[in-house]
Design a binder for these strands. Sequence first.
DNA 1: CGATAAGCGAGACGGTACGTCAAGTCTTGTA
DNA 2: TACAAGACTTGACGTACCGTCTCGCTTATCG
Lengths: 207, 207, 207, 207
Amino acid sequence: MAPRTAPDPARRSERARSAVLAAAYELVSEVGFGRLTIEAIAARAGVGKQTIYRWWPSKGAVVFDAFLAANGRQDGDFSLPDSGDLGADLRIVLRLSADDLTDPTLDRTYRAINAEVLGDPAVQAEYRTRLLDPLLNVTRDRLRSAREAGQLAPDTDLDFAVELLYGPLYYRWLHQLGPVDHDFTDRLVDAVLRALNPPAAHGRSGA
Amino acid sequence: MAPRTAPDPARRSERARSAVLAAAYELVSEVGFGRLTIEAIAARAGVGKQTIYRWWPSKGAVVFDAFLAANGRQDGDFSLPDSGDLGADLRIVLRLSADDLTDPTLDRTYRAINAEVLGDPAVQAEYRTRLLDPLLNVTRDRLRSAREAGQLAPDTDLDFAVELLYGPLYYRWLHQLGPVDHDFTDRLVDAVLRALNPPAAHGRSGA
Amino acid sequence: MAPRTAPDPARRSERARSAVLAAAYELVSEVGFGRLTIEAIAARAGVGKQTIYRWWPSKGAVVFDAFLAANGRQDGDFSLPDSGDLGADLRIVLRLSADDLTDPTLDRTYRAINAEVLGDPAVQAEYRTRLLDPLLNVTRDRLRSAREAGQLAPDTDLDFAVELLYGPLYYRWLHQLGPVDHDFTDRLVDAVLRALNPPAAHGRSGA
Amino acid sequence: MAPRTAPDPARRSERARSAVLAAAYELVSEVGFGRLTIEAIAARAGVGKQTIYRWWPSKGAVVFDAFLAANGRQDGDFSLPDSGDLGADLRIVLRLSADDLTDPTLDRTYRAINAEVLGDPAVQAEYRTRLLDPLLNVTRDRLRSAREAGQLAPDTDLDFAVELLYGPLYYRWLHQLGPVDHDFTDRLVDAVLRALNPPAAHGRSGA
DNA sequence: CGATAAGCGAGACGGTACGTCAAGTCTTGTA
DNA sequence: TACAAGACTTGACGTACCGTCTCGCTTATCG
């Protein structure tokens, strides 16, 4: 009944798919997302435009897939260490995030993606499910395990905690308010842990 | 030295200028920044395209000016209350920020501007000087007065404190992680004050 | 060697081609060549501008093709009658030319084309090869056959003769020096034949 | 009552007038009529655009005036020699015409003017009265004096004769059918005289 | 195992918007 | 009040890409 016969994934050309993703990844870091065109991707990839339109709904989706393919988060295989020392573990993951944001190529691509996220709810949804939520989830999991271990108050709002942690990092990076370095992320972790611990929690994690 | 003879601001038509800004402001909230076109702005404003190109370097700059003109931050005339109660004062300003971000029209325009900021360093610079820095400055001033009043530790890093405050708010709004309401901002203020005033507050800050 | 990848004529849309030519032909006779725009042709033809730019180098070339398509000289299939009576045959062809020049639509289009010819050497070259030379050639051929039949002096300069014939016709038409009618062309043929015949050619043509 | 107050010729700036004409004349020979712009004329002349629009109705009129001003035909002061030898006198004037048409600058300007003539009846009318008719008139006068001297038949159609003379010259020049040199014009004069004086010349003209 | 239907590259198509150019008009001092 | 200067509205330019639509040409099941 569907007038538009959906393409058959079984017959999809792997060669074309990866050429498109590679071309998109290169181009977005060369010219930025705004100046990136489907035609340029097709030309660089040696692919017909229709092949792109057949498999991706939008330019954002292509770049997105390209980013995921190049940065290997697509398999949800990453998690936080759990050394028992919450502060140490958070410092590790925030330092890694800072390193990513600081890498020139990733910085550019990240900005491109964030700009798209701001402008297109569909892209935002995909960004959430494929990139952001996985990161927030593993962080939340680590906080939960700390809460269960009694290192955080039983009523700690984990969602809120995660936002306290990543919000300032993201804010500083996006608006270039200062260096996104390990000193900053370490101080950030300390501050968030202070905020999360009730006043009476004298003995505390840092101790 | 200028290769392209610059237009003479003295001869600029105020009628055209304000018509453009009004049209841009309306359109960006109607169709979003991505679907906004210079031609549509010119048509709505009853202005020649050249008049826009003569006075603004880019679509982003027009929208930006339109936003500033409509939201009157250009005169730096706003500041925080200073009731003596830091927490109360911060709650007020964060609530106002949340209200702005929640207003449907402002939300859309804000996203458009932020997308531009991400894509164009020049736009970002203007965003910083004309919108963001004034806000951060008045907030920092309030924190400073609190520090001088002995309500915060003398070595409190005010820049960092400001980022702790606005970062999570912005993060939640941008990625739609949850409702941007007064409950959230109130809890945020509390958390930040806890982070700034460590649990053993008296002992520590007094040390 | 071609820097700009040439379009593939095999893929050319016949529908678009003929719609463009028809629109151009209509418009040039409606508004004249000067007020004719590519955009108007594209709009009338229901065609994208790019389709015109893809296949024709200039507005003049489009109008030109339109004229040829509408007046069917492109196949060089026309020739002069050869009744044996040179004067009679020339009178026929000049009368036909005069009729063309007198037709209101053709007049307007002809003027447009001639104006282009004057302003653009490339258009002129095409005008020569596709419109003018074919006409001059068949006329020259008829004169040659007359020369071979002994009706003209053996040393008659055929190129010159042809110019004597069409020059005054064209001149009168272009500058509107008088009616371009059969009386005029008949007298013109007589005059040219007198000019071509040596003084001693007593008995002949006029007799 | 007239809403648009006509400019007062008495207050006209001679400096501006001649600067405009000079600039127009230079530019038309540099870039051709098609690429000539009013703005360029104004800029080159150091004149406001409005000054041009105030005194000339169209680009064609400016170029026209410029041409006349530069080539001094505006005072109708020229005429043909009358040596008593019609052929010799015609050869002289046709040679001069050919020289004009051959001069690179005049050629370009002439083509520009003729293109305008073709496209605009108003320009054509002015061309007739200010350039073409004066030339045809003096030629016609010379032919008339020859007719009165019995060198041409009493019933010779002088208008027709003039067209026979200039038509082929103009035709060859415009369509670049061959060299516009003295050999050509001399042969043209001979041919026209043959056409006007039929073979049985003596008998006839003497009758 | 050969037909047949899909994905593929290529690229022409009808469109929209771009950023530029020049048209002709209007405004603002200056002499 | 004519002038130089130049900003204004208008409209066409020629270009870049959009997303859709044929084209032949592999390729890889299935009848």
